[in-house]
Design a protein around this nucleic acid. Structure first.
Length: 273
DNA sequence: CTGTTAACCTGAGTGC
DNA sequence: TGCACTCAGGTTAACA
């Protein structure tokens, strides 16, 4: 589900829903997601509040008023939805945090690949965050950076884009879309990209992510924003999920779907050579 | 070190 | 209807 634009959408909405709201209750229905949910999470949160909400890559960082951080990752199928205090429990609801304003933050995740942990100290130094590559929308991610990191890398450029240690926040949808926009074949070995292609790819990644944030994310199946609503970027997808359909750019070739490192990869054989 | 594969888990879709 | 199988917005341990 959630790549950078979807997580950014959630982060922005949560700020208006729950920032500074006193936490009045915590209920957990599950002991384990990808990692164990901290057994002391109720005690750690109750009577405190979230005083800052940030995003790093695909992670949400909720700063607790006592200095700790609640780190949340949505995995593939995770959702964070704000519901009324008294709502019917969703089948896959794993934790509900309730606030003095009678709102309830519900973490719903059918596949349980998400993560919720507590961090003491600097969250950016935590194991899960410290090795993340730069934010794709930051100045640090530029053509010079990309050129440096493709050196001698024999993996495909698509695999490199999806490696969080190289760059954070890009997943399967936006890797496919950015490569289409920059007219680069996803299977091209990273080291073979020209200077010009690096420029184009950096620009395409930034443009795609900004546009997707503006449209509040992509809903293929599971993604919902904190109001339970769909994103709107899926109607602008050029290649993802469009196998066997006509390319919207050249209007001649047929979008192909191949498998790269186990992930569905979509491209136009004519536009992306 | 680099690169590949399998595993975590549930649900939806397809073909027989 | 049922069963077997494949696939899905992510991450990472284990392996060659």
């Amino acid at each position: 589900m959630p790549e950078l634009p979807e997580v950014e959408t959630i982060a922005r909405e949560l700020r208006s829903h729950i920032l500074y709201q006193p936490i009045t209750g915590v209920v957990t229905y599950t002991t384990h997601l990808r990692l164990p949910i901290p057994p002391n999470i109720k005690h750690a949160l109750i009577k405190k509040s979230f005083i800052n909400i940030k995003r790093r890559g695909k992670y949400l960082l909720l700063s607790i008023s006592d200095g700790k951080t609640l780190l949340v990752h949505l995995g593939i199928s995770g959702q964070i939805i704000i519901l009324p205090l008294s709502h019917e429990k969703n089948k896959h609801e794993h934790i509900a945090i309730t606030f003095a304003n009678h709102k309830s933050l519900c973490f719903i995740d059918p596949r349980k690949f998400g993560t919720i942990i507590l961090i003491t100290g600097d969250p950016l130094q935590h194991t899960l965050l410290k090795n993340l590559g730069p934010e794709p929308l930051s100045k640090k991610f530029n053509s010079t950076f990309l050129r440096k990191h493709i050196y001698n890398r024999k993996i495909t450029i698509k695999q490199l884009l999806m490696d969080g240690r190289f760059i954070s926040g890009i997943g399967n949808i936006y890797a496919n879309e950015a490569l289409f926009l920059s007219k680069i074949n996803p299977i091209k070995p990273a080291y073979t990209l020209t200077f010009k292609e690096c420029d184009n790819l950096v620009n395409a990644i930034k443009a795609t992510l900004k546009r997707a944030i503006l449209k509040k994310g992509t809903t293929i199946k599971d993604f919902r924003n904190s109001f339970g609503e769909n994103g709107q970027f899926q109607v602008e997808l050029k290649v993802y999920g469009r196998e066997n359909k006509t390319c919207l750019e050249c209007k001649k070739s047929i979008i192909k779907k191949i498998r790269i490192a186990g992930r569905g990869s979509f491209y136009c054989p004519k536009c992306q050579q």
